[in-house]
Design a protein around this nucleic acid. Structure first.
Lengths: 105, 105
DNA sequence: ACTTTACATAACCAAAAGGTTATACATGGG
DNA sequence: CCCATGTATAACCTTTTGGTTATGTAAAGT
């Protein structure tokens, strides 16, 4: 059984850029491919990793594949990583909530 | 010029365990090697990655190499990751904050 | 019906990652 | 000086990763 590995998902800069792209709105695979200068199958592999880790979701719309962030999972993922670093720094998870509260406008 | 990649540094479970070890105090390479059942050169490679990413520092003490956490860099890494998650989630902060508050126990 | 268009899939490749064993080097103790 | 200990380095191996090209398939436009 597959153990989701958030470090794997976020460990690649292309994948992080894809996530940033999706922040500004849902995107088709075509649009994502156009934003990088790697091939369509290469992009698709990155999307598969993000799908496997459940960081993004896919919707089929005719011949299009529309991708969008799974904000819940993404937040959980970062929470996990921050928790690991937080453990090392002796200041824990609540600082994320603090950050989010201060960051609101 | 080399851009430190915190995601790479934390991407391996052995390295995360090494960091956890170092949290409880500085360690010689010998002690770190003893804590895993992989070879000394394998451990050394992990240490090199952590050194490259400047997450840990090395001190030469006679024939010993003493490793310790670079808390400042960890702090920076933490901030970097907070920034990343902020970038991704900022316009959804409200619902996430609600989620986190409900999710706390 | 035919042809684009968007995506899927297969086969392949080079380089990186994570490990090994064997061996060299340097320091400290007897 | 000699030997044990701690670390460094070299050579090698396997698997994974991130990419490629080529080709197949399904939906949409004309």
């Amino acid at each position: 059984m597959y153990m989701p590995d958030i470090y794997r998902a976020l460990g690649d800069p292309t994948r992080r850029k894809i996530l940033l792209m999706l922040k500004s709105g849902d995107k088709t695979q075509k649009e994502i491919v156009a934003a990088f200068n790697i091939s369509q199958p290469a992009v698709k592999k990155h999307l598969k990793v993000l799908l496997d880790e459940q960081i993004i979701k896919e919707q089929i719309h005719g011949k299009y594949r529309i991708y969008h962030l799974d904000l819940h999972m993404l937040q959980t993922a970062y929470q996990e990583m921050l928790h690991d670093i937080g453990d090392l720094l002796d200041h824990k998870l609540h600082s994320l909530k603090d950050y989010m509260e201060k960051g609101e406008d």
